[in-house]
Design a protein around this nucleic acid. Structure first.
Lengths: 264, 264
DNA sequence: AAAATCTGTCCTTTCCATAGGACAGGTTTT
DNA sequence: AAAACCTGTCCTATGGAAAGGACAGATTTT
Protein backbone atom coordinates (compact mmCIF):
# COMPACT_ATOMS: atom_id res chain seq x y z
CA UNK A 1 0.00 0.00 0.00
CA UNK A 2 1.29 3.38 -0.88
CA UNK A 3 0.92 6.33 1.40
CA UNK A 4 -0.68 9.17 -0.47
CA UNK A 5 0.15 12.75 0.42
CA UNK A 6 -2.94 14.16 2.06
CA UNK A 7 -4.96 15.99 -0.53
CA UNK A 8 -6.24 18.91 1.42
CA UNK A 9 -9.36 20.77 0.43
CA UNK A 10 -8.79 24.44 1.07
CA UNK A 11 -11.52 26.54 2.55
CA UNK A 12 -14.20 23.92 2.81
CA UNK A 13 -16.07 24.56 5.98
CA UNK A 14 -19.77 24.61 6.71
CA UNK A 15 -21.91 26.54 4.25
CA UNK A 16 -23.49 29.12 6.50
CA UNK A 17 -24.97 29.75 9.88
CA UNK A 18 -23.51 29.22 13.30
CA UNK A 19 -21.36 26.24 12.43
CA UNK A 20 -19.52 28.42 9.93
CA UNK A 21 -19.10 31.09 12.55
CA UNK A 22 -17.44 28.73 14.98
CA UNK A 23 -15.38 27.22 12.16
CA UNK A 24 -14.06 30.59 10.99
CA UNK A 25 -13.41 31.70 14.52
CA UNK A 26 -11.35 28.64 15.37
CA UNK A 27 -9.54 28.68 12.04
CA UNK A 28 -8.58 32.30 12.64
CA UNK A 29 -7.30 31.57 16.12
CA UNK A 30 -5.25 28.69 14.80
CA UNK A 31 -3.65 30.56 11.93
CA UNK A 32 -3.02 33.65 14.03
CA UNK A 33 -1.17 31.53 16.55
CA UNK A 34 -3.61 31.86 19.46
CA UNK A 35 -3.79 28.09 19.44
CA UNK A 36 -0.27 27.04 18.59
CA UNK A 37 0.50 23.75 16.80
CA UNK A 38 0.48 20.91 19.29
CA UNK A 39 -1.79 22.69 21.75
CA UNK A 40 -5.07 21.14 22.82
CA UNK A 41 -8.25 23.07 22.08
CA UNK A 42 -10.86 23.60 24.80
CA UNK A 43 -13.30 20.72 25.10
CA UNK A 44 -16.37 20.63 22.90
CA UNK A 45 -18.56 21.50 25.85
CA UNK A 46 -16.47 24.56 26.70
CA UNK A 47 -16.36 25.71 23.10
CA UNK A 48 -20.13 25.32 22.90
CA UNK A 49 -20.55 27.46 25.99
CA UNK A 50 -18.03 30.06 24.83
CA UNK A 51 -19.63 30.52 21.42
CA UNK A 52 -23.12 30.12 22.77
CA UNK A 53 -24.07 27.25 20.48
CA UNK A 54 -24.89 23.61 20.98
CA UNK A 55 -22.30 20.88 21.03
CA UNK A 56 -23.60 19.55 17.73
CA UNK A 57 -22.61 22.81 16.08
CA UNK A 58 -19.16 22.80 17.63
CA UNK A 59 -18.66 19.25 16.41
CA UNK A 60 -19.56 20.29 12.88
CA UNK A 61 -16.97 23.05 12.98
CA UNK A 62 -14.34 20.72 14.40
CA UNK A 63 -15.16 18.07 11.81
CA UNK A 64 -14.55 20.63 9.06
CA UNK A 65 -11.22 21.62 10.58
CA UNK A 66 -10.32 17.98 10.94
CA UNK A 67 -11.18 17.31 7.29
CA UNK A 68 -8.75 20.01 6.28
CA UNK A 69 -6.09 18.54 8.48
CA UNK A 70 -5.83 21.57 10.72
CA UNK A 71 -6.76 19.70 13.87
CA UNK A 72 -6.65 16.10 15.01
CA UNK A 73 -9.18 14.81 17.43
CA UNK A 74 -8.52 11.74 19.55
CA UNK A 75 -11.50 10.11 21.17
CA UNK A 76 -11.53 10.50 24.91
CA UNK A 77 -8.67 12.98 24.93
CA UNK A 78 -9.10 16.42 23.38
CA UNK A 79 -8.67 17.96 19.94
CA UNK A 80 -5.16 19.09 19.11
CA UNK A 81 -3.81 21.49 16.54
CA UNK A 82 -1.68 19.63 14.01
CA UNK A 83 1.77 20.88 13.17
CA UNK A 84 1.67 21.51 9.43
CA UNK A 85 -0.67 24.26 8.35
CA UNK A 86 -0.85 22.37 5.09
CA UNK A 87 2.19 23.11 3.00
CA UNK A 88 3.86 26.32 2.02
CA UNK A 89 1.94 28.31 -0.58
CA UNK A 90 3.46 29.28 -3.88
CA UNK A 91 5.01 32.66 -3.51
CA UNK A 92 5.29 34.95 -6.50
CA UNK A 93 7.44 38.02 -6.29
CA UNK A 94 5.77 41.08 -7.63
CA UNK A 95 8.48 41.64 -10.19
CA UNK A 96 8.12 38.16 -11.61
CA UNK A 97 4.42 37.48 -11.28
CA UNK A 98 4.34 34.63 -13.73
CA UNK A 99 7.52 32.74 -13.26
CA UNK A 100 7.13 29.97 -10.80
CA UNK A 101 10.46 28.28 -11.22
CA UNK A 102 10.92 27.87 -7.52
CA UNK A 103 11.44 24.19 -7.74
CA UNK A 104 7.77 23.59 -8.10
CA UNK A 105 5.94 22.29 -11.11
CA UNK A 106 3.01 24.19 -12.50
CA UNK A 107 0.90 23.07 -15.39
CA UNK A 108 -1.91 24.75 -17.26
CA UNK A 109 -5.24 23.55 -18.61
CA UNK A 110 -7.32 25.41 -21.17
CA UNK A 111 -10.97 25.57 -20.10
CA UNK A 112 -12.53 27.66 -22.82
CA UNK A 113 -11.46 29.53 -25.92
CA UNK A 114 -13.67 31.77 -28.03
CA UNK A 115 -14.09 35.11 -29.72
CA UNK A 116 -16.68 37.31 -28.07
CA UNK A 117 -17.84 40.88 -27.70
CA UNK A 118 -15.81 42.36 -24.84
CA UNK A 119 -17.59 43.07 -21.54
CA UNK A 120 -17.76 46.77 -20.76
CA UNK A 121 -14.83 46.89 -18.30
CA UNK A 122 -12.58 45.11 -20.78
CA UNK A 123 -13.55 47.35 -23.67
CA UNK A 124 -12.89 50.38 -21.51
CA UNK A 125 -9.52 49.17 -20.29
CA UNK A 126 -8.29 48.27 -23.77
CA UNK A 127 -9.79 51.38 -25.45
CA UNK A 128 -11.71 49.21 -27.87
CA UNK A 129 -14.17 50.81 -30.31
CA UNK A 130 -17.79 49.71 -30.19
CA UNK A 131 -18.32 46.51 -32.13
CA UNK A 132 -14.76 45.27 -31.69
CA UNK A 133 -14.27 41.64 -30.80
CA UNK A 134 -11.78 39.99 -28.50
CA UNK A 135 -10.36 36.54 -27.97
CA UNK A 136 -11.27 35.22 -24.56
CA UNK A 137 -9.39 32.31 -23.05
CA UNK A 138 -9.92 30.80 -19.62
CA UNK A 139 -7.15 28.71 -18.13
CA UNK A 140 -6.46 26.92 -14.89
CA UNK A 141 -2.99 26.64 -13.46
CA UNK A 142 -2.11 23.71 -11.24
CA UNK A 143 0.69 23.19 -8.76
CA UNK A 144 1.36 19.63 -7.72
CA UNK A 145 -1.91 18.60 -9.30
CA UNK A 146 -3.99 21.10 -7.36
CA UNK A 147 -5.54 24.05 -9.19
CA UNK A 148 -4.42 27.29 -7.58
CA UNK A 149 -5.25 29.89 -10.19
CA UNK A 150 -8.04 30.74 -12.61
CA UNK A 151 -7.03 33.05 -15.46
CA UNK A 152 -9.21 34.76 -18.02
CA UNK A 153 -7.44 36.74 -20.70
CA UNK A 154 -8.89 39.09 -23.30
CA UNK A 155 -6.85 39.97 -26.39
CA UNK A 156 -8.02 42.19 -29.28
CA UNK A 157 -8.87 40.11 -32.33
CA UNK A 158 -6.19 41.53 -34.65
CA UNK A 159 -3.40 40.81 -32.21
CA UNK A 160 -4.65 37.40 -31.29
CA UNK A 161 -4.52 36.17 -34.88
CA UNK A 162 -0.80 35.48 -34.61
CA UNK A 163 -1.26 32.34 -32.55
CA UNK A 164 -3.84 29.63 -32.02
CA UNK A 165 -5.39 27.45 -29.41
CA UNK A 166 -2.59 24.92 -29.19
CA UNK A 167 0.03 27.64 -28.74
CA UNK A 168 -1.97 28.98 -25.83
CA UNK A 169 -2.13 25.66 -24.05
CA UNK A 170 1.66 25.51 -23.95
CA UNK A 171 3.24 28.94 -23.74
CA UNK A 172 2.47 31.97 -21.60
CA UNK A 173 0.39 34.53 -23.41
CA UNK A 174 2.89 37.35 -23.12
CA UNK A 175 5.58 35.19 -24.71
CA UNK A 176 3.28 34.47 -27.63
CA UNK A 177 2.52 38.14 -28.07
CA UNK A 178 6.18 39.15 -27.96
CA UNK A 179 7.13 36.41 -30.38
CA UNK A 180 4.66 37.77 -32.90
CA UNK A 181 6.16 41.22 -32.84
CA UNK A 182 4.13 43.02 -30.21
CA UNK A 183 6.40 45.24 -28.16
CA UNK A 184 5.07 44.98 -24.65
CA UNK A 185 5.87 48.05 -22.64
CA UNK A 186 3.80 48.66 -19.51
CA UNK A 187 1.14 47.15 -17.33
CA UNK A 188 -1.20 48.39 -14.65
CA UNK A 189 -2.25 45.91 -11.98
CA UNK A 190 -4.90 46.07 -9.36
CA UNK A 191 -5.13 43.59 -6.50
CA UNK A 192 -8.22 42.87 -4.39
CA UNK A 193 -10.20 39.99 -2.99
CA UNK A 194 -13.42 38.39 -4.23
CA UNK A 195 -15.78 35.59 -3.41
CA UNK A 196 -15.68 32.47 -5.56
CA UNK A 197 -18.60 32.32 -7.98
CA UNK A 198 -20.08 28.88 -8.69
CA UNK A 199 -18.17 28.31 -11.93
CA UNK A 200 -14.83 29.43 -10.50
CA UNK A 201 -15.43 27.53 -7.28
CA UNK A 202 -15.93 24.33 -9.21
CA UNK A 203 -12.93 24.89 -11.44
CA UNK A 204 -10.64 25.60 -8.50
CA UNK A 205 -12.06 22.94 -6.23
CA UNK A 206 -13.06 25.47 -3.62
CA UNK A 207 -16.21 26.19 -1.65
CA UNK A 208 -18.78 28.56 -3.05
CA UNK A 209 -18.04 32.07 -1.81
CA UNK A 210 -14.55 31.19 -0.64
CA UNK A 211 -12.20 34.18 -0.60
CA UNK A 212 -9.89 34.50 -3.58
CA UNK A 213 -7.06 36.86 -4.35
CA UNK A 214 -8.06 38.82 -7.43
CA UNK A 215 -5.58 40.45 -9.78
CA UNK A 216 -6.57 42.39 -12.87
CA UNK A 217 -3.91 43.58 -15.26
CA UNK A 218 -4.01 45.72 -18.37
CA UNK A 219 -0.96 45.31 -20.59
CA UNK A 220 -0.02 47.98 -23.19
CA UNK A 221 2.47 48.01 -26.02
CA UNK A 222 5.00 50.73 -26.93
CA UNK A 223 2.27 52.70 -28.66
CA UNK A 224 0.15 52.73 -25.52
CA UNK A 225 -2.48 50.45 -27.03
CA UNK A 226 -4.00 47.77 -24.82
CA UNK A 227 -2.89 44.31 -25.90
CA UNK A 228 -4.10 42.14 -23.04
CA UNK A 229 -6.58 42.30 -20.22
CA UNK A 230 -6.06 39.67 -17.56
CA UNK A 231 -8.36 38.70 -14.75
CA UNK A 232 -6.65 36.26 -12.40
CA UNK A 233 -8.09 34.57 -9.32
CA UNK A 234 -5.82 32.77 -6.86
CA UNK A 235 -6.57 30.35 -4.05
CA UNK A 236 -5.08 32.12 -1.02
CA UNK A 237 -4.02 28.91 0.73
CA UNK A 238 -1.83 28.08 -2.26
CA UNK A 239 -0.64 31.45 -3.49
CA UNK A 240 0.80 34.65 -2.10
CA UNK A 241 1.97 37.82 -3.73
CA UNK A 242 5.21 38.90 -2.11
CA UNK A 243 7.13 42.11 -2.38
CA UNK A 244 10.13 43.65 -0.75
CA UNK A 245 10.21 47.37 -0.10
CA UNK A 246 12.93 49.71 1.05
CA UNK A 247 12.24 52.90 2.91
CA UNK A 248 12.88 56.25 1.26
CA UNK A 249 13.38 59.15 3.65
CA UNK A 250 12.16 62.35 2.07
CA UNK A 251 11.76 64.75 4.93
CA UNK A 252 8.05 64.39 5.22
CA UNK A 253 6.17 61.20 5.87
CA UNK A 254 8.48 59.06 3.83
CA UNK A 255 7.42 56.36 1.44
CA UNK A 256 8.46 52.97 0.14
CA UNK A 257 10.40 51.92 -2.92
CA UNK A 258 9.96 48.44 -4.33
CA UNK A 259 13.09 46.33 -4.45
CA UNK A 260 13.71 44.67 -7.76
CA UNK A 261 15.84 41.61 -7.09
CA UNK A 262 14.72 38.33 -5.64
CA UNK A 263 12.07 38.70 -3.00
CA UNK A 264 12.81 35.99 -0.52
CA UNK B 1 -35.74 66.62 2.91
CA UNK B 2 -32.12 65.87 2.32
CA UNK B 3 -31.03 63.14 0.03
CA UNK B 4 -28.63 60.88 1.85
CA UNK B 5 -25.91 59.11 -0.08
CA UNK B 6 -26.90 55.46 -0.10
CA UNK B 7 -25.02 53.70 2.64
CA UNK B 8 -24.23 50.44 0.97
CA UNK B 9 -23.52 47.25 2.87
CA UNK B 10 -20.74 45.46 1.10
CA UNK B 11 -20.92 41.76 0.70
CA UNK B 12 -24.13 41.03 2.51
CA UNK B 13 -25.89 38.31 0.63
CA UNK B 14 -27.66 35.19 1.84
CA UNK B 15 -25.74 33.17 4.41
CA UNK B 16 -25.41 29.85 2.65
CA UNK B 17 -27.18 27.38 0.43
CA UNK B 18 -28.68 27.85 -2.99
CA UNK B 19 -29.78 31.45 -2.52
CA UNK B 20 -26.16 32.38 -1.96
CA UNK B 21 -25.15 30.49 -5.06
CA UNK B 22 -27.55 32.43 -7.24
CA UNK B 23 -26.61 35.64 -5.50
CA UNK B 24 -22.90 35.18 -6.10
CA UNK B 25 -23.48 34.08 -9.66
CA UNK B 26 -25.52 37.15 -10.53
CA UNK B 27 -23.20 39.48 -8.69
CA UNK B 28 -20.28 38.09 -10.63
CA UNK B 29 -22.04 38.51 -13.94
CA UNK B 30 -22.91 42.08 -13.06
CA UNK B 31 -19.44 43.13 -11.99
CA UNK B 32 -17.79 41.31 -14.87
CA UNK B 33 -19.97 43.21 -17.29
CA UNK B 34 -22.03 40.28 -18.59
CA UNK B 35 -25.07 42.23 -17.46
CA UNK B 36 -24.17 45.83 -18.21
CA UNK B 37 -25.60 48.73 -16.20
CA UNK B 38 -29.06 49.57 -17.46
CA UNK B 39 -29.67 46.12 -18.89
CA UNK B 40 -32.65 44.07 -17.75
CA UNK B 41 -31.96 40.74 -16.09
CA UNK B 42 -33.81 37.61 -17.23
CA UNK B 43 -37.17 37.17 -15.51
CA UNK B 44 -37.33 35.45 -12.15
CA UNK B 45 -38.89 32.40 -13.77
CA UNK B 46 -36.08 32.12 -16.31
CA UNK B 47 -33.40 32.62 -13.68
CA UNK B 48 -35.06 29.92 -11.58
CA UNK B 49 -35.01 27.53 -14.50
CA UNK B 50 -31.44 28.43 -15.48
CA UNK B 51 -30.04 27.90 -12.00
CA UNK B 52 -32.32 24.97 -11.30
CA UNK B 53 -33.86 26.45 -8.17
CA UNK B 54 -37.30 27.65 -7.21
CA UNK B 55 -38.50 31.18 -7.80
CA UNK B 56 -38.46 31.81 -4.06
CA UNK B 57 -34.72 31.28 -4.02
CA UNK B 58 -34.17 33.56 -6.98
CA UNK B 59 -36.19 36.24 -5.26
CA UNK B 60 -34.03 35.93 -2.17
CA UNK B 61 -30.91 36.44 -4.26
CA UNK B 62 -32.44 39.41 -6.08
CA UNK B 63 -33.58 40.95 -2.82
CA UNK B 64 -30.01 40.82 -1.53
CA UNK B 65 -28.71 42.47 -4.71
CA UNK B 66 -31.41 45.07 -4.44
CA UNK B 67 -30.50 45.80 -0.82
CA UNK B 68 -26.96 46.51 -1.90
CA UNK B 69 -28.20 48.80 -4.63
CA UNK B 70 -26.78 46.70 -7.43
CA UNK B 71 -30.14 46.11 -9.10
CA UNK B 72 -33.50 47.82 -9.12
CA UNK B 73 -36.64 45.83 -9.57
CA UNK B 74 -39.85 47.43 -10.84
CA UNK B 75 -43.01 45.49 -10.29
CA UNK B 76 -44.50 44.17 -13.48
CA UNK B 77 -41.47 45.04 -15.57
CA UNK B 78 -38.16 43.30 -14.96
CA UNK B 79 -35.14 43.80 -12.74
CA UNK B 80 -32.55 46.19 -14.08
CA UNK B 81 -28.89 46.66 -13.25
CA UNK B 82 -28.32 50.07 -11.71
CA UNK B 83 -25.63 52.34 -13.05
CA UNK B 84 -23.34 52.97 -10.11
CA UNK B 85 -21.51 49.94 -8.82
CA UNK B 86 -21.36 51.81 -5.55
CA UNK B 87 -18.56 54.33 -5.57
CA UNK B 88 -14.92 54.08 -6.53
CA UNK B 89 -12.81 52.20 -4.01
CA UNK B 90 -9.84 53.80 -2.35
CA UNK B 91 -6.81 52.99 -4.39
CA UNK B 92 -3.41 52.78 -2.76
CA UNK B 93 -0.31 52.67 -4.88
CA UNK B 94 2.11 50.05 -3.79
CA UNK B 95 4.86 52.57 -3.22
CA UNK B 96 2.72 54.66 -0.91
CA UNK B 97 0.62 52.08 0.87
CA UNK B 98 -0.40 54.31 3.71
CA UNK B 99 -0.94 57.71 2.29
CA UNK B 100 -4.50 58.20 1.31
CA UNK B 101 -4.42 61.90 0.53
CA UNK B 102 -6.36 61.43 -2.64
CA UNK B 103 -8.92 63.98 -1.72
CA UNK B 104 -10.58 61.53 0.58
CA UNK B 105 -10.76 61.70 4.32
CA UNK B 106 -9.68 58.75 6.36
CA UNK B 107 -9.88 58.54 10.11
CA UNK B 108 -8.70 55.94 12.57
CA UNK B 109 -10.18 54.39 15.68
CA UNK B 110 -8.25 52.46 18.28
CA UNK B 111 -10.02 49.23 19.21
CA UNK B 112 -7.60 47.63 21.60
CA UNK B 113 -4.21 48.27 23.05
CA UNK B 114 -2.24 45.91 25.26
CA UNK B 115 1.04 44.18 25.91
CA UNK B 116 0.95 40.47 25.24
CA UNK B 117 3.10 37.46 24.52
CA UNK B 118 3.58 37.41 20.75
CA UNK B 119 1.80 34.69 18.76
CA UNK B 120 4.21 32.25 17.16
CA UNK B 121 4.18 33.77 13.63
CA UNK B 122 4.92 37.23 15.02
CA UNK B 123 7.73 36.03 17.23
CA UNK B 124 9.25 34.24 14.27
CA UNK B 125 8.97 37.21 11.91
CA UNK B 126 10.49 39.65 14.40
CA UNK B 127 13.16 37.20 15.63
CA UNK B 128 11.99 37.61 19.20
CA UNK B 129 13.52 35.48 21.95
CA UNK B 130 11.25 33.26 24.02
CA UNK B 131 9.55 35.22 26.77
CA UNK B 132 9.69 38.54 24.98
CA UNK B 133 6.60 40.70 25.05
CA UNK B 134 5.10 42.92 22.38
CA UNK B 135 2.70 45.80 22.21
CA UNK B 136 -0.38 44.86 20.25
CA UNK B 137 -2.70 47.53 18.90
CA UNK B 138 -5.80 46.98 16.80
CA UNK B 139 -7.14 49.88 14.79
CA UNK B 140 -9.90 50.49 12.30
CA UNK B 141 -9.54 52.96 9.46
CA UNK B 142 -12.61 54.65 8.02
CA UNK B 143 -13.19 56.43 4.76
CA UNK B 144 -16.25 58.62 4.58
CA UNK B 145 -17.47 57.11 7.80
CA UNK B 146 -17.27 53.54 6.55
CA UNK B 147 -14.66 51.21 7.99
CA UNK B 148 -12.51 49.82 5.20
CA UNK B 149 -9.50 48.45 6.99
CA UNK B 150 -8.65 46.48 10.13
CA UNK B 151 -5.06 46.78 11.30
CA UNK B 152 -3.24 44.87 14.00
CA UNK B 153 0.32 45.90 14.74
CA UNK B 154 2.89 44.18 16.93
CA UNK B 155 5.90 46.14 18.17
CA UNK B 156 8.62 44.81 20.50
CA UNK B 157 8.22 46.18 24.00
CA UNK B 158 11.51 48.10 24.15
CA UNK B 159 10.79 50.00 20.96
CA UNK B 160 7.19 50.72 21.81
CA UNK B 161 8.11 52.50 25.02
CA UNK B 162 8.85 55.71 23.12
CA UNK B 163 5.20 56.56 22.55
CA UNK B 164 1.87 55.90 24.19
CA UNK B 165 -1.74 55.17 23.48
CA UNK B 166 -2.77 58.72 22.59
CA UNK B 167 0.09 59.12 20.12
CA UNK B 168 -1.07 55.98 18.40
CA UNK B 169 -4.60 57.20 17.93
CA UNK B 170 -3.33 60.21 16.00
CA UNK B 171 -0.17 59.46 14.07
CA UNK B 172 0.82 56.55 11.83
CA UNK B 173 2.92 54.02 13.65
CA UNK B 174 5.90 54.28 11.35
CA UNK B 175 6.07 58.02 11.90
CA UNK B 176 6.10 57.48 15.64
CA UNK B 177 8.88 54.97 15.35
CA UNK B 178 11.01 57.21 13.16
CA UNK B 179 10.45 60.16 15.41
CA UNK B 180 11.82 58.19 18.34
CA UNK B 181 15.03 57.39 16.53
CA UNK B 182 14.34 54.07 14.90
CA UNK B 183 15.92 53.99 11.46
CA UNK B 184 13.43 52.14 9.33
CA UNK B 185 15.06 50.48 6.42
CA UNK B 186 13.23 47.65 4.72
CA UNK B 187 9.94 45.81 4.72
CA UNK B 188 8.66 42.53 3.36
CA UNK B 189 5.01 42.35 2.41
CA UNK B 190 2.82 39.44 1.56
CA UNK B 191 -0.63 39.84 0.03
CA UNK B 192 -3.40 37.24 0.05
CA UNK B 193 -7.11 36.89 0.72
CA UNK B 194 -8.93 35.64 3.81
CA UNK B 195 -12.41 35.13 5.12
CA UNK B 196 -13.72 37.56 7.72
CA UNK B 197 -13.72 36.04 11.20
CA UNK B 198 -16.61 37.00 13.52
CA UNK B 199 -14.72 39.75 15.35
CA UNK B 200 -13.29 41.31 12.21
CA UNK B 201 -16.61 40.99 10.41
CA UNK B 202 -18.33 42.93 13.14
CA UNK B 203 -15.64 45.61 13.32
CA UNK B 204 -15.71 46.16 9.57
CA UNK B 205 -19.46 45.89 9.18
CA UNK B 206 -19.16 42.97 6.81
CA UNK B 207 -20.79 39.56 6.55
CA UNK B 208 -19.21 36.62 8.30
CA UNK B 209 -16.81 34.90 5.95
CA UNK B 210 -16.77 37.79 3.51
CA UNK B 211 -13.58 37.92 1.43
CA UNK B 212 -10.96 40.38 2.64
CA UNK B 213 -7.66 41.48 1.17
CA UNK B 214 -4.96 40.47 3.61
CA UNK B 215 -1.59 42.17 3.84
CA UNK B 216 1.12 41.18 6.31
CA UNK B 217 4.24 43.26 6.59
CA UNK B 218 7.41 42.89 8.55
CA UNK B 219 9.36 46.12 8.97
CA UNK B 220 13.07 46.09 9.85
CA UNK B 221 15.48 48.78 10.91
CA UNK B 222 18.97 49.49 9.60
CA UNK B 223 20.36 46.75 11.82
CA UNK B 224 18.02 44.18 10.33
CA UNK B 225 16.00 43.86 13.51
CA UNK B 226 12.25 43.59 13.23
CA UNK B 227 10.51 46.67 14.57
CA UNK B 228 6.93 46.14 13.45
CA UNK B 229 4.70 43.30 12.36
CA UNK B 230 1.53 44.45 10.65
CA UNK B 231 -1.51 42.39 9.78
CA UNK B 232 -3.94 44.42 7.69
CA UNK B 233 -7.35 43.38 6.39
CA UNK B 234 -9.12 45.46 3.76
CA UNK B 235 -12.71 45.43 2.52
CA UNK B 236 -12.29 44.75 -1.20
CA UNK B 237 -15.27 46.87 -2.24
CA UNK B 238 -13.60 49.90 -0.67
CA UNK B 239 -9.92 49.30 -1.22
CA UNK B 240 -7.56 48.22 -3.97
CA UNK B 241 -3.84 47.81 -4.15
CA UNK B 242 -2.58 49.28 -7.41
CA UNK B 243 0.78 49.04 -9.08
CA UNK B 244 2.30 50.05 -12.34
CA UNK B 245 4.88 47.84 -13.97
CA UNK B 246 7.16 48.32 -16.95
CA UNK B 247 8.45 45.46 -19.03
CA UNK B 248 12.11 44.53 -18.98
CA UNK B 249 13.36 42.59 -21.97
CA UNK B 250 16.16 40.28 -21.02
CA UNK B 251 16.38 37.79 -23.84
CA UNK B 252 14.57 35.03 -22.03
CA UNK B 253 11.06 35.19 -20.72
CA UNK B 254 11.28 38.79 -19.64
CA UNK B 255 10.03 40.17 -16.39
CA UNK B 256 8.45 43.26 -14.89
CA UNK B 257 9.92 46.20 -13.08
CA UNK B 258 7.77 48.23 -10.69
CA UNK B 259 7.35 51.88 -11.56
CA UNK B 260 7.97 54.22 -8.68
CA UNK B 261 6.08 57.41 -9.45
CA UNK B 262 2.38 57.95 -9.07
CA UNK B 263 0.34 54.93 -9.99
CA UNK B 264 -2.75 56.34 -11.59
C1' DA C 1 -58.38 46.55 -26.29
C1' DA C 2 -56.36 42.13 -25.82
C1' DA C 3 -52.58 39.13 -25.01
C1' DA C 4 -48.28 38.13 -23.10
C1' DT C 5 -45.01 38.83 -19.59
C1' DC C 6 -43.46 40.09 -15.31
C1' DT C 7 -43.36 40.97 -10.27
C1' DG C 8 -45.82 40.66 -5.59
C1' DT C 9 -47.96 37.62 -2.41
C1' DC C 10 -49.74 33.63 -0.16
C1' DC C 11 -50.09 28.78 0.55
C1' DT C 12 -48.42 23.84 1.82
C1' DT C 13 -44.85 20.45 2.14
C1' DT C 14 -40.24 18.74 2.62
C1' DC C 15 -35.60 18.83 4.29
C1' DC C 16 -31.70 20.28 7.01
C1' DA C 17 -29.36 22.91 10.64
C1' DT C 18 -29.60 23.60 15.40
C1' DA C 19 -30.79 22.96 20.27
C1' DG C 20 -30.72 20.16 24.17
C1' DG C 21 -30.31 16.11 26.59
C1' DA C 22 -28.72 11.31 27.69
C1' DC C 23 -25.55 7.55 27.80
C1' DA C 24 -21.55 4.54 26.49
C1' DG C 25 -16.73 4.13 26.31
C1' DG C 26 -12.02 5.85 26.04
C1' DT C 27 -8.24 8.81 28.34
C1' DT C 28 -6.16 11.32 31.79
C1' DT C 29 -5.53 12.67 36.42
C1' DT C 30 -5.90 11.84 41.21
C1' DA D 1 -8.59 1.71 41.43
C1' DA D 2 -11.45 5.62 41.35
C1' DA D 3 -12.80 10.00 39.81
C1' DA D 4 -12.93 13.48 36.42
C1' DC D 5 -13.00 14.64 31.81
C1' DC D 6 -13.45 13.97 27.12
C1' DT D 7 -15.20 12.26 22.65
C1' DG D 8 -18.61 9.23 20.05
C1' DT D 9 -23.30 8.25 19.33
C1' DC D 10 -28.21 8.36 19.49
C1' DC D 11 -32.52 10.58 20.51
C1' DT D 12 -36.44 14.24 19.97
C1' DA D 13 -38.06 18.83 18.90
C1' DT D 14 -38.03 23.19 16.55
C1' DG D 15 -37.22 26.74 13.17
C1' DG D 16 -35.74 28.31 8.78
C1' DA D 17 -34.56 27.39 3.92
C1' DA D 18 -36.29 25.70 -0.13
C1' DA D 19 -39.59 23.57 -3.51
C1' DG D 20 -43.67 24.00 -6.07
C1' DG D 21 -47.86 25.79 -7.26
C1' DA D 22 -51.57 29.35 -7.57
C1' DC D 23 -53.43 33.86 -8.22
C1' DA D 24 -53.66 39.04 -8.24
C1' DG D 25 -51.96 43.23 -10.16
C1' DA D 26 -48.77 45.94 -12.88
C1' DT D 27 -46.35 46.63 -17.28
C1' DT D 28 -45.26 45.91 -21.83
C1' DT D 29 -46.17 44.28 -26.36
C1' DT D 30 -49.26 43.02 -30.02
Amino acid sequence: MTVQPEQMTPQSGPAGGKARSVYLSLRGEISSGTYAPGATLPSEAKLAAAHDVSRVTVRRALAALSDEGLVETRGGAGTRVTGGTGGVPLSADIALPHLFQMGRETTARLLSFSYVAPPAPVAAALDLPAGARVQRATRIRLSEGRPFSHLTTYVPEEISSHYDETDLAQSPLLQLLERSGTRIEAAAQSVTATAATPDVAEALGVTLGAPLLSLTRTVRDAGGRGVEYLSALYVPELFRLDMTLSRVRDGGEGHWRPVIGEGA
